[in-house]
């Protein structure tokens, strides 16, 4: 178990702080417990776990979709565990980015619109973030030509990179990635990891990365195993 050791000098508020976080559907039934974890800006955490090990519950919890049953969850100094569902949605829009396993994009929107989708919910006009979106996409290797295309026209690798751009658009404190490389081949996977972490570091975003692929561990500062988190009953 590693607790956060600052790797950057500046930030005073941790990007994410978990204090004895617990979640259960019914008291006494299967539950998820997280140990105390504090991650400073730019510190990345690898959570190792296969699907079916409560991964989705963990992601929903960290992203503020579901509220914890007990404990504390602080994101960028906001007490997520005390916020209403609507406030958590707002906080997620500005402070938490999510990258799924695959099919991250709304197929009928253009690539650029998919990225700018976030601006609406973060309470910012799309126009103010447009330039940042374009720059991010370019940095991730998506040409202006590709940006105007429908999302469904892109390859899986390209779509995953668009997802990174969307997740980082509002320079969030936290980026949650759920096996984003599982649909990629080895070459693409390494390239993806490179751009993900490079771009995240540029805006001092902390990455929490969930995957069963042990080889990816080397990219991260810390690691956790799902097996340690789920107590009591076996996974569903």
């Amino acid at each position: 178990m590693h607790n956060g050791v600052p790797v950057t000098t500046k930030p005073k508020i941790p990007a994410i702080e978990l204090k004895d976080l617990q979640f259960w559907y019914r008291a006494g039934a299967w539950q998820l417990s997280l140990p105390a974890v504090t991650l400073e800006h730019g510190q990345h955490l690898f959570i190792q776990g296969a699907s079916g090990s409560g991964k989705t519950t963990l992601l929903n919890l960290l992203a503020g979709i579901t509220a914890p049953s007990a404990g504390e969850l602080w994101v960028q100094g906001h007490a997520m565990h005390q916020l209403s569902a609507a406030k958590r949605d707002k906080l997620r829009a500005s402070q938490i980015g999510v990258v799924f396993q695959q099919l991250n994009l709304i197929p009928y929107l253009s690539v650029l619109d998919n990225v700018l989708l976030r601006a609406t919910f973060a309470g910012q006009a799309a126009i103010t973030l447009q330039q940042r979106a374009i720059d991010l996409l370019r940095a991730l290797g998506l040409t202006d030509d590709l940006q105007r295309q429908r999302a469904s026209a892109l390859s899986v690798g390209q779509q995953q990179r668009v997802a990174i751009a969307r997740a980082l658009l509002t320079q969030p404190a936290l980026l949650i990635a759920d096996e984003p490389t599982s649909a990629l081949d080895a070459n693409n996977r390494d390239a993806f990891m490179q751009v993900l972490l490079t771009e995240a570091d540029k805006c001092a975003t902390t990455v929490i990365f969930v995957s069963h692929d042990q080889q990816l561990k080397r990219y991260f500062h810390f690691e956790l195993s799902m097996a340690d988190l789920a107590k009591g009953v076996v996974a569903c």
Binding site: I65, A85, D89, L103, N104, L117, R118, F121, A122, R166
Partner: peptide
């Protein structure tokens, strides 16, 4: 379903 999940991920409320 995917559309809904994506919208939720970027901060849409139910």
């Amino acid at each position: 379903q995917r559309e809904v999940a994506i919208l939720r991920a970027v901060g849409a409320s139910p």
